[in-house]
Each structure stands twice: as structure tokens, then as C-alpha cells.
Design a protein around this nucleic acid. Structure first.
Lengths: 194, 194
DNA sequence: AATAATACGGAACGAACGTTCCATTTAAAG
DNA sequence: CTTTAAATGGAACGTTCGTTCCGTATTATT
């Protein structure tokens, strides 16, 4: 029948995800994609549809590859407090090691696209909802173990923590001072205690 | 001599600030500016230079008009704790009332432009530095009055608070639930106490 | 009133945008 | 081996981008 693809579709999608993640939707041109993905224009459009469709696929893949594993890990974590701390530290390390300040693809997309693109807004919102409930569930567990304060509901604390992480994803963009991140992480985590 | 300008330059700059604030740099076209500012192309370029120069001017004006007044108010505030709470509430109210989810022009610019535009990165970084020190100064005052915890340095707490506000400016983009904001604000402010 | 400097509106620029089309190449199925 | 549907590379599409240019209108000065 037909010729087989010369490229691995999943691999290309990963590359597209990283391109959009780094430069955003508008600043990533079709030419950038052709160059960065190392496939031809026609293969790009035949395989992924137009630029917007590719972006949506990339954003969904980000969720699968980057968000869901963390949420699953949180669900099955033995030491909830340590796991949350690990997430913060991971964000911090990423900020300090990643030279190009990519931040978080979801946060970037929320800022650039959500206000003018309902489809992307919906994807971002879904990630937010699921993250909030996963964190809330974990915090509730921690509260029962006496690890966290019960002065606030698990949901309130979850929202607070998620907000702090989103803040870090912004801070990444204009600061790479290790002490800055240490301070923010320390106070944020301390807020969960008593 | 010459004809007088038919428009108020400061007023036009305000309009440009709001356009860029709402849509970002890349998504705001020269045509959008001509339409939105109600001046001709030539007047636009003669008065403000190219698009990038106009954006820089708009961002600097944002600082003058929106950031500095808050920092000055913080410096001269009688009740520091209440003032910080007021800032949070103002961010919340803006989020709930502003239909187009503009968020914060500085945060938006940090996410979209800072990684690829040194000039804008520098402006954003300066705002961040000055905000941090203004908040730290206020918190130090509050600590001496016994209002805030001394378990963390004033600088650490300032960084934490600023990070939380930046987080809110992201949350605005995909959530307009009042309770979401109330939870985040409550826990963030509680973290400053004991 | 004449002069001179500037603002203005609108046409036009080349470049880059996202997208489509087509001739060619490829390889699985018959 | 022939057939055939799909993958490919590259040219080309119309549109929009940011920007420039120019003829005209305007007004403070002489």
C-alpha cells in the first residue's frame, strides 16, 4: 500500500511541545517548526493539521508527560510532605539549570492564550482542576497524619500551594537567584505546618 | 511654525499600554494599534518610534502608573498588615471584575518577552527588585510591631508574598471563582503570622 | 499674507506569515 | 513485478506583518 513514515510521530510531537513551550504560540512560526522538527512542511500539515491543532496536541502531551506523572506520584507517595517538597525542589532545580527559562508550558499558555482561546483555556482549566484535587487529596492525608495544619481546609491549602508553584513559574522568567527560590519554597512549605 | 498635535501623547500611551497589557506584544499588530489608539500610522511611528519602542514606553508607564503608587502607599501605610491585605484584595477584585483577564502587565511581559528580550527582561527585573525591597521594608516594620512572624527574615517573607501575588496574576487567566481567590489570599496572609 | 515646520491620512513597500498544492518517491499489498 | 495509496520536498499561494514614504493640511511665527 503506502509508504511508511520516516519519523516517529511521538518524537516529533515532543519536539513541537518543547518549541512551543520555549517560545510560545505566536512567536513560534511555521518555519521554526519545519526547522526544529526536521520534517517537511507537507508532512507537518498532513500529520498534525494546522499550527493551532499541533499546539493543542503539544499541550495535551505536556499534561500526559509532565503533569499526570507528578499527580500519580503524589497519589501513591508514602511521605506526602516530602513529596510536595520534592516537587518544589524540582521546580527550583529546573529554574536554575534550564538556561532558556522555559518555565511551565501550562502557565505560559494560560498567560498567552487562555484569555483569547477558549479551547486552550479549557485544557489549562482542566489541568488546574485535576491538580488542585490531587494536591487536596494528598494534603488531607497529611492532615490526618498530623503533618499539616488543620487551620485551613485541605482544598484551601491545595489552592495556596498550587498558586505558589504557578508564582515560581513566573519568577523563573526574570530571576535565577538560588536564594530567591529557597526563600519562597521555605516559607511556602512552612505555611502548611501549624 | 508647525501644526500642533491633535492628540494627547500621554493619553495615547495609556491606550497603548492597555492594548499590550490585554493582548501581549506579538498578538498586538500595528493595525490593532492604529485602530485602538485612533491615530494614523505615521503619527504613531513619528511620535513613538517602532512597535518595540512603544511597548517599552508602555511598560515603563505601567510601572509609573500602577506599580510605584502601590509601593509608595506601602511605604507610608499606617497599618502595614491591612495595606498588604488591601493589595491582595485589589488583585482579587480586579480578577473578578475584569472580564478580559488582563492580569498583570509585568507578569504577562515576563512570561512572553523576558526570555528573548533583554531590554524588557531588565525592566521587569527592576520592578521585581524594587517591589521586593519595598515589601521587605514594610514587613520588617510589621515584624517590629509584632504583626508578623520572625521565623523568617523580612526579605524571605517579602519574596514569598510577591511570589504569591504573581501566582494570582496567573490564576486570573483561567479561573474566576471568588472562593479560589479567597482561599489563596487567606492562606498566604496567614503565613505571615506566627 | 507669506513662510516654514510639523502633523496627518493613505498608499505602498518588502518580508514573513500560515497554508496549500503538486510532482516525485517510496513501500506495502495483490 | 505491478499496482496504489501514502509520505515527501519544494514551489507557490494569498494574506498580514511592521515599516516607510509622500502629498496634503494645518498653524505658529515672520
Amino acid at each position: 500500500m503506502a509508504r511508511t513514515k520516516l519519523f516517529d510521530e511521538a518524537l516529533i510531537l515532543d519536539k513541537a511541545m518543547n518549541l512551543f513551550w520555549e517560545k510560545g504560540y505566536n512567536a513560534t512560526s511555521a518555519q521554526d517548526l519545519v526547522d526544529g522538527l526536521n520534517i517537511s512542511r507537507s508532512s507537518l500539515y498532513d500529520t498534525f493539521g494546522d499550527k493551532h491543532s499541533l499546539f493543542v496536541k503539544a499541550l495535551k502531551r505536556y499534561r500526559q508527560e509532565r503533569v499526570d506523572p507528578v499527580l500519580n506520584g503524589l497519589d501513591s507517595a508514602g511521605d506526602v510532605e516530602q513529596y510536595i517538597r520534592d516537587v518544589f525542589v524540582a521546580v527550583k532545580d529546573e529554574a536554575l539549570n534550564d538556561a532558556c527559562s522555559k518555565g511551565c508550558f501550562m502557565v505560559n499558555s494560560a498567560v498567552e492564550m487562555a484569555p483569547v482561546d477558549p479551547e486552550i483555556a479549557s485544557i489549562v482549566h482542566a489541568i488546574m482542576i485535576d491538580t488542585e484535587s490531587a494536591v487536596a487529596k494528598a494534603i488531607e492525608k497529611g492532615q490526618k497524619q498530623g503533618l499539616f495544619t488543620t487551620s485551613h481546609s485541605a482544598q484551601s491549602l491545595a489552592r495556596f500551594i498550587f498558586n505558589a508553584i504557578n508564582g515560581l513559574r513566573v519568577t523563573v522568567k526574570f530571576d535565577t537567584d538560588k536564594r530567591m527560590f529557597d526563600d519562597i519554597v521555605d516559607v511556602s512549605l512552612a505555611a502548611l505546618k501549624v
